[in-house]
Design a protein around this nucleic acid. Structure first.
Length: 477
RNA sequence: CGGGGCGUGGCUCAGUCCGGCUAGAGCACUCGGUUCGGGACCGAGAGGUCGGCGGUUCAAAUCCGCCCGCCCCGACCA
């Protein structure tokens, strides 16, 4: 806790981000460079994300399991693109129990290889397919530059790994999971996202095709909020994931993988946060309603607290917190909970006791404009409505912000200007050289080739050749 | 790994150039009192081997050497 102001987003966006996380007690720096400690408030948000996704995964036939943290180095080497993509960022264990290991063990950067190995043991017949497993795990990628939640050496995520008999079925699965991510982002987190395909240079190491949901942060940079990969038969061939089909012929499986990480917490912070701090989307908020009692002496306290207790009972369906800290003034508490992003605050003081009212303050509308007086008798229904309104409003605001920062460049010079302050939606011929030139000139990369495409065709914004697809160019996290 | 910056109570920093007296401030923390509807105030208190090791000196946070760590900027990335 601190009573000092944080830097505004316009002054210094990354400093705003760092301080909000610390002040809201989402996470703290660890003694190990590049790692983070997720504090209870941050973890609670993650648990809500987990619960939500787990429900969606299970509803589509997936089951959870757990695979080992350590992977034999030789496994990584079995898929050429995969090892090339990941080897620069591997953490490798070479000593165990004081003895040098015969074969180094990689701390998993992702689990396609070890899961592929297991699938090859488990899959014999087409009757064993599909196999639809998810795991919640921590993974390690040795990054050069780290940011809380966005890029740390160790992070938490879920990784789904599926194996199918046919290409069509695997491709369908890849798209189904991307849809689930998009639905989750939009409906639960109020984070608007664009679904699309990754360019060859941006796709997962070892995938045939990668798909992502892309979100725009408050500084207009893009953030890949979730990915789903169609792996073709690449891993099936590398790990002999084979089955006998109805004709008793040996076939390679088709596999997919898909993941969403604690990075998504960064997306929530940077999509909704304002200069007062975090704003949690009600459906995922660790605390949906905070109740601040107001009294000056024991007499007032004895009148106020029974009302608070009654509210607690009325609101038991919501995630609520009564801030009964005695050493702090109400004003301090308001600011404190605003920093933490609690969507709705209820204030109950002597005047409310008299009038049978409760003061409600919406986090998404700052100051007096966001305050409404509720009759105590209607609190349950009104809180429900207000939370729904806040959820909807956050999404609308985020969509409006994003759409007002997407531009269609008329030419290459225009594109250069645009990516300094937003996303450029432009025709692209598909040549990696054009993509590389944009990156070289502007640091912006292709984010995704959206599924939603305009009709017709145009000229590549870089080279002027014919182009049949439009792509988003943007700076990214 | 290249360029730049920084290491002093929990946090932000002053002091370092030009060595010297008891190592300071603000915030946070503890206790007491007054406060409490938008970041309260007064008083008392606790808390530091000045990143580490070595050197120079009567004397080192301050000068010298080596090492360690962190942050920012570049080459890689969910």
């Amino acid at each position: 806790m601190s009573n000092e102001k944080i830097p505004s987003r316009s002054e210094n966006y990354s400093e705003w981000y760092n301080q909000v996380i610390q002040r809201a007690e989402m996470a703290d720096y660890s003694p190990v460079r590049g790692c983070m400690v997720v504090r209870p408030y941050g973890w609670s948000l993650w648990e809500n994300i987990q619960d939500n996704l787990n429900r969606k995964f299970k509803a589509t036939g997936h089951v959870n399991a757990a695979f080992p943290l350590f992977i034999p180095m030789s496994f990584l080497e079995k898929e050429k693109e995969h090892v090339e993509g990941f080897s620069p960022e591997l953490a490798v264990v070479t000593i165990g129990g004081g003895e040098k290991l015969e074969e180094p063990l990689v701390v998993r950067p992702t689990s396609e290889t070890i899961i592929g190995y297991m699938y090859s043991k488990w899959v014999k017949s087409y009757r064993d397919l599909p196999i639809l497993i998810n795991q919640w795990a921590n993974v390690v990628r040795w990054e050069m530059r780290t940011r809380m939640f966005l890029r740390t050496l160790e992070f938490y995520w879920q990784e789904g790994h599926t194996a199918h008999a046919t290409q069509a079925e695997a491709e369908e699965e890849t798209r189904r999971m991307l849809d689930i991510y998009a639905q989750f982002a939009i409906e639960e987190a109020a984070v608007p996202v664009i679904k699309g395909r990754k360019s060859a240079s941006e796709k997962f190491a070892g995938a045939v095709n990668s798909y992502s949901i892309e979100a725009m942060m408050g500084d207009t940079k893009a953030l890949q909020a979730g990915t789903s990969h169609f792996l073709g038969q690449n891993f099936a061939k590398a790990f002999n994931i084979q089955y006998l089909d109805v004709n008793n012929e040996l076939q390679n499986c088709w596999t997919t993988s898909w993941g969403l990480s604690t990075r998504f917490i960064g997306a929530i912070i940077m999509t909704h946060g304002d200069d007062q701090g975090l704003i949690m989307p009600p459906r995922l908020a660790p605390i949906q309603v905070v109740i601040v009692p107001i009294f000056r002496n024991d007499e007032e306290k004895s009148k106020v607290m029974p009302v608070i207790d009654q509210l607690k009972t009325q609101l038991s369906d919501f995630r609520i917190k009564v801030d009964d800290r005695t050493e702090l003034t109400p004003g301090f508490k308001y600011n404190d909970w605003e920093m933490r992003g609690v969507p709705l605050r209820l204030e109950v003081g002597p005047k409310d006791v008299e009038k049978g009212s409760v003061m409600a303050a919406r986090r998404d509308i700052p100051g007096r404009d966001g305050k409404v007086i509720l009759p105590q008798s209607e609190v349950t229904a009104r809180v429900k409505e207000l939370l729904a309104e806040i959820q909807a409003n956050l999404l609308q605001k985020a969509i409006a912000f994003r759409d007002s920062h997407i531009f269609e460049p008329t030419d290459y010079e225009d594109l250069k200007r645009i990516v300094a302050e937003g996303w450029a939606f432009a025709w692209w011929c598909g040549d990696p050289a054009c993509e590389a030139k944009v990156k070289e000139d502007t640091k912006a990369t292709t984010r995704c080739i959206p599924f939603d495409q305009p009709d017709g065709h145009g000229k590549c914004v870089v080279c002027g050749r014919d182009a049949t697809e439009k792509v988003y160019f943007s700076k990214a996290y």
